[in-house]
Design a protein around this nucleic acid. Structure first.
Length: 504
RNA sequence: GGCCCCAUCGUCUAGCGGCCCAGGACACCGCCCUCUCAAGGCGGAGACACGGGUUCGAGUCCCGUUGGGGCUACCA
């Protein structure tokens, strides 16, 4: 009801329909994810429709697994779609491999009205033609030798088993202008557009053709995609016009480059959304980071939840130049979210990692859950990822750790360290179990320090090492209170024994 | 090679002619806080690619150069 009251229905007149159209050749990398995000942000911002479409026209390189990967990664990021292969929709199907009839029908139309022609040249012949043109110092361009073939010649070729490709007879005069929401007007001389192949000899559509037919059929209002497609756009516009379609609006977003300024690829380390997930990044942080890569809210705010990004997103604030991704900043953002998000959310996100490590079972009871929450609360402020969080939690679940070697030398080799530890143990033992809090245990320890006239560190450091095996970590009494009385006492005993046996 | 896009600190960016001897964030360095490590606070170093114009005045507009990226497939 509330939403209804604040809805600006005038925006609905725009009828925004956008699509993310990946080719299922591999995992979703951050470039694709960012393109999807911008589409989604725009759709949600304008109360439009976000569509997922699979560009799987190249049967030779489709991985079934890639589809589920892409879908699962988009869902993980929180980018939900209104129409798509799995959910269907009024203008489906949403896999190009299932729409061949449409492409063939539209290609046939172009053939019949003379805008397209059959080309019997083989790839080898075309390569040779290009090579020759290059040798002559000319711009390699198809010479249209198949353009005016007689019907008989065609029939003869086909009788000989040669299947034709279909080409568009692109006008060789004039210019084609791309009106881009981010870059303004970009014009291309039509002579630089070669005769576009729209149908391969195997009968399948080419990317540039299927894309145009589908964008029209699916009533796409805004084509938002990576900049690498800007050069394809004039070709697509020619097809749009020849087919009698209205043009959608175009927005070419800058690309995301690897640290060495080259196009993203697997050898650049973690670039797939899946990897970020397994490395312990939160979707909230990844979305925030990706939004900042190429878009800026205009002020100095950087940490924004998706709702806010959504409400502030617009193309005017999208930059024109490519960006290089920097894991360090993502890592920082992730740490920020680890601390800013509600504890329950972080626990939920940490859950699978803790399970994987064997710290919690498949069906944890409320006690386990309570303890997990406590552990996450005490370690989350000093870790950057869920993997780190899991690692930093280890000693809360295992007491079989080794003592840090440097720590042993520094804190366990002192003359009377076992006496000190025993004093500390005694102090903790004196705190009633139901009062075993950070404040009370610290109070007890401070009393020991005062009585012995020693520095705090002299007691704190050996105790931390005894309890966790580590020299770094949360505040000592956060560890103490989380671990609980019995565990603390037994670990101190264990440490005293160890020192006696190892360092006597 | 041809065509197209782009160009502010190492990285992400603010800047849409005077408010900029250029602001923020990450990373880096120093100090503070402190039981350790983080976090946090404070401070530091660090950029308008270059050359011409236009203008009283240019990071901001125009041209060129250089550099980077993309496209140039019967890949998408």
């Amino acid at each position: 009801m509330k939403e209804f009251l604040f809805t600006d229905w005038s925006d609905d007149m725009d009828n925004v329909r956008v699509r993310f159209a990946p080719s299922p050749t591999g995992s979703l990398h951050i470039g694709g994810a960012r393109t999807a995000l911008f589409n989604w942000l725009f759709a949600r911002n304008r109360r439009g429709v976000f569509i997922l479409r699979l560009e799987d026209t190249d049967t030779g390189r489709n991985l079934e697994e890639a589809v589920t990967q892409i879908e699962s990664n988009l869902r993980w990021l929180g980018l939900d779609w209104d129409e798509g292969p799995d959910v269907g929709g009024p203008l489906g199907p949403y896999c190009q491999s299932e729409r061949s009839e449409l492409y063939q029908r539209e290609a046939q139309r172009l053939l019949e009205n003379g805008h397209a022609y059959r080309c019997y040249c083989t790839p080898e012949e075309l390569a040779q033609q290009r090579e020759e043109a290059r040798k002559r110092g000319e711009v390699p361009r198809y010479d249209r030798r198949c353009c005016e073939l007689d019907e008989e010649v065609c029939r003869a070729k086909e009788a000989a088993g040669i299947r034709p490709a279909l080409r568009i007879k692109v006008p060789r005069t004039g210019t084609t202008v791309v009106s881009d929401l981010i870059r303004g007007k970009v014009s291309f001389d039509n002579t630089t557009l070669d005769d576009i192949v729209i149908q391969k000899s195997n009968g399948g559509p080419t990317y540039n053709f299927a894309c145009v037919v589908d964008d029209h059929a699916m009533q796409i209002s805004h084509v938002i995609r990576a900049e690498e497609h800007l050069s394809n756009t004039p070709k697509q516009i020619v097809i749009f016009k020849l087919l009698g379609y209205d043009l959608p609006a175009f927005a070419h977003v800058p690309m995301i480059l690897a640290p060495d300024r080259s196009k993203l690829s697997k050898r650049h380390g973690a670039t797939a959304v899946e990897e970020f997930r397994t490395e312990g990044f939160l979707p909230e942080a990844v979305v925030n980071y990706l939004a900042l890569l190429g878009w800026s809210p205009g002020d100095e705010q950087e940490q924004m939840m998706v709702e806010e990004i959504k409400s502030r997103f617009n193309f005017e604030a999208v930059s024109k130049h490519a960006a290089i991704y920097d894991v360090k900043k993502l890592t920082w953002l992730n740490a920020q979210y680890l601390n800013a998000l509600p504890l329950s959310r972080v626990v939920e996100a940490a859950f699978p990692f803790m399970q994987e490590a064997g710290y919690i079972g498949d069906t944890p009871d409320s006690g386990e859950l309570e303890y997990l929450t406590r552990v996450v609360e005490t370690v989350r402020s000093r870790v950057h990822t869920l993997v780190e969080l899991c690692d930093a939690s280890r000693y809360f679940y295992r007491s079989d750790f080794e003592y840090d070697e440097k720590g042993v030398r520094k804190h366990f080799t002192k003359q009377d360290v076992t006496r000190l530890l025993a004093k500390g143990r005694e102090a903790l033992a004196g705190v009633p179990a139901d009062q075993f809090t950070v404040a009370e245990t610290e109070k007890a320890y401070r009393k020991v320090i005062e009585g012995l006239k020693i520095s705090g560190g002299a007691l704190f450091h050996p105790t931390r090492l005894a309890l966790s095996g580590r020299t770094v970590g949360p505040g000592l009494f956060d560890i103490v209170a989380t671990l609980g009385r019995n565990e603390c006492l037994s670990r101190i005993d264990q440490a005293i024994d160890w020192i006696h046996s190892q360092l006597a």
